[in-house]
Nucleic acid binder design. Structure first.
Length: 419
RNA sequence: GUGAAUGUAGCUCAAUUGGUUAGAGCGCUGGACUGUGGAUCCAGAUGUUGGGGGUUCGAGUCCCCUCAUUCACCCCA
């Protein structure tokens, strides 16, 4: 039988065995975030489209070709969120969570939507775990956020996580840098690919990310953005690096690291592992974003972790737990004992056991077969003549041994129990 | 948006240059085993060969369209 409907392209079901691992990872994240004093927040999946267009940037691919965008019945232009930062900032402002002089720290766990062609480590619906710290400009916070991200990966067993670090400066630095990039590239126009020629016009920084070989050759000789940082941005970045160095946190300085969202400023970073070719997490400062969304002129910083990429990586490394949760007890009973069987299962469940029962009181053989297939550790066989004395047969499904016992031994009793 | 590969039973995969009724293992159902599961043996059901159209006496196989999956590019988590 072919199902009538299948899931849409680029989205998928997360089945119980896998989801269990997801929850374990999320629990780990929650525990670490808690220790760093971040609080969980959940924002809607739909937001005003305009909000993302303005903050992520009109010229970015996310906005130009990847947003799920539509008009709702009230003619409002709505988008499925393609990222988590703008919504958190919006919620922060809308709910007046700003306390002057205090940093506000949030984390979120949720799904994002981007209309891409699906491929390895990329779906149209994907899940992110992210943090946002709003209202503090100190480089000390940059360091803490990076530490937090690395600690999370380390606790999951990714001992070879590599931190890539860069500073993209502030809008003033970038203007200077863009200008010099245009000057630098103008003699090489013929050597650059078509895309890069277009980028030369609207966003020269993007050229640095190009994967085309002939572009790479030109890019290799490009001046570093670090030489164009203003004093404030330069000192900030030097401080970040110096503290990371003192802490013994290793990083790869990647001055060509360009994050694909326009709101990033100053420190940006990504985490990957050797040979993966994808980043499993990334983030940075966004010191102008809060003001852009109509709030006070506050700085912010955050990161997002790609859940699917992380889970895939952990699976490849054998770092996922594969154990299956099985019933402690399977209740088998004579047809006349339906009510008692239901009560017994409830009593055992109240005591915290995982209990499964046969739903068709067929013959013993087929019920035992059901018990076997349920992978229950033990079966409780209820027979009328035994139950009169509050006794049942307890069968160990692994060894096959069985004994007749008082129900008291299971610390339950059916005497006096009624529906 | 561009390019490539793949699509057969619930799952993993077969099927000669186009050739009769599309097979195997696992799983499933039943029996050997009349109230004790698993192991073994036996038997049985698997299916519009992703969908649609075309070529042909004949298509799982060749052609076109379409959908999906996988991979790469673009970009990103």
């Amino acid at each position: 039988m072919k199902p009538k409907y299948t899931s849409l392209r680029g989205v998928r079901d997360i089945l119980p065995d896998e989801l269990k691992n997801w929850r374990r990872i999320e629990d780990r994240a929650r525990e670490i975030f808690r220790r760093y004093n971040y609080r969980e927040i959940e924002t809607p999946i739909i937001e005003p489209a305009e909000m993302f267009i303005r903050t992520v940037g009109e010229e970015t691919d996310i906005v130009r070709k990847e947003m799920y965008i539509f008009k709702d019945r009230g003619e409002r232009l709505v988008a499925l969120r393609p990222e988590g930062t703008a919504p958190v900032v919006r919620a922060f402002l809308e709910n007046n969570l700003y306390v002057p002089g205090r940093v506000a720290k949030f984390y979120y766990i949720g799904d994002m939507f981007r209309y891409d062609r699906p491929q390895a480590g990329r779906q149209r619906e994907f899940h992110q775990i992210g943090v946002e710290a709003l209202g503090e400009s100190s480089y000390v916070l940059d360091v803490e956020v990076i530490m937090l991200l690395l600690e999370f990966f380390e606790e999951l067993g990714l001992v070879d996580a590599v931190l890539l670090l860069n500073s993209v400066g502030c809008p003033r630095c970038r203007l200077e840098y863009s200008k010099s990039l245009r000057e630098f590239f103008s003699p090489y126009v013929d050597e650059l690919c078509e895309d890069c020629n277009a980028r030369l016009e609207n966003n020269p920084l993007r050229i640095l990310d190009c994967k085309v070989e002939r572009c790479k050759k030109v890019i290799a000789k490009v001046p570093s953005i670090l030489d164009y940082l203003c004093d404030d941005c330069r000192i900030h970045f030097e401080n970040v690096r110096s503290v990371l160095d003192s802490l013994g946190i290793r990083y790869v300085l990647d001055t060509r690291l360009v994050r694909g969202l326009d709101y990033y400023t100053k420190t940006t970073f990504e985490v990957t592992v050797p040979g993966l070719g994808l980043s499993i997490g990334g983030g940075g400062r966004y010191d102008g974003l809060i003001k852009d969304l109509g709030g006070p002129d506050l700085p912010g910083i955050g990161f997002a972790i790609g859940m699917e990429r992380l889970v895939n990586l952990l699976r490849d490394r054998g770092l996922l737990v594969e154990e299956e949760e099985v019933p402690d007890y399977f209740i088998i009973y004579d047809a006349t004992l339906v009510t008692k069987a239901i009560i017994l299962s409830k009593l055992l469940r109240n005591r915290g056991f995982i209990v499964e029962m046969s739903y068709m009181a067929k013959n013993l053989k087929s019920q035992l077969k059901e018990a076997d297939r349920s992978k229950a550790k033990k079966s409780v066989i209820m027979r009328e003549e035994l139950l009169a004395n509050n006794r049942v047969i307890l069968k160990d499904m692994i060894t096959g041994e069985q004994e007749e016992i008082e129900l008291d031994k299971l610390e339950v009793s059916l005497i006096g129990e009624r529906v």
